[in-house]
Amino acid sequence: MANYGMALDYKNCINCKACEVACKEENGVQLGADKHRIWVGVKEIEGEWPLLDIISNTFLPSQCQHCENAPCQEVCPTHATYYDENGVVRVDSDKCILCSYCMVACPYDARYVDDRTMTVDKCTFCSDTRLARGETTTACQNTCPTKVRTFGDLDDPESEISELLRTREHFSLKAHIGTKPKLFYLT
């Protein structure tokens, strides 16, 4: 029983996309540009050549926010989307009817259709793979060359993520709509 979350030191991101590759490899995510559980958002450089504002160019790695108050879970007509015992938002593909309501309801565009099962799929914090094998990191965290991601138990005051959130300023995406995301962007 844990309450998993992730902190992202996003300013360290170099947009190498190793996390996207590792995620696909580890979790057997379908190939294809729109079949991704995680992604790196790019904020384009502002200004015109030669007056480019290089500092404006930032990368924003993201994925399912594993909201504590997840709109996707609330709108699911068959409880296919549920919170597991570790507070991770999961999809039970046996129950998913592919009404796509969760995809419409998710404010983060974190869901996609897996064509093999014809059900909705999303980030699981590697619950089926790495965590099931007893490891304590996610694939995206493990592979990151600049150590952007820190995954851990938010309820454990001794965990690295708890320490980070205590000591660093951070923000969440679309916090104003009350979804209580568990992805924290460190500033």
């Binding site: 709108v75 007509p77 068959t78 409880h79 009817i97 259709v113």
Partner: peptide
Amino acid sequence: IGHPVRMAIYNTISPGMTSAI
């Protein structure tokens, strides 16, 4: 709907009451 038969089954045995659908 991707799985209409599954819908009939799980709408009944696993109803998501908070869902408007």
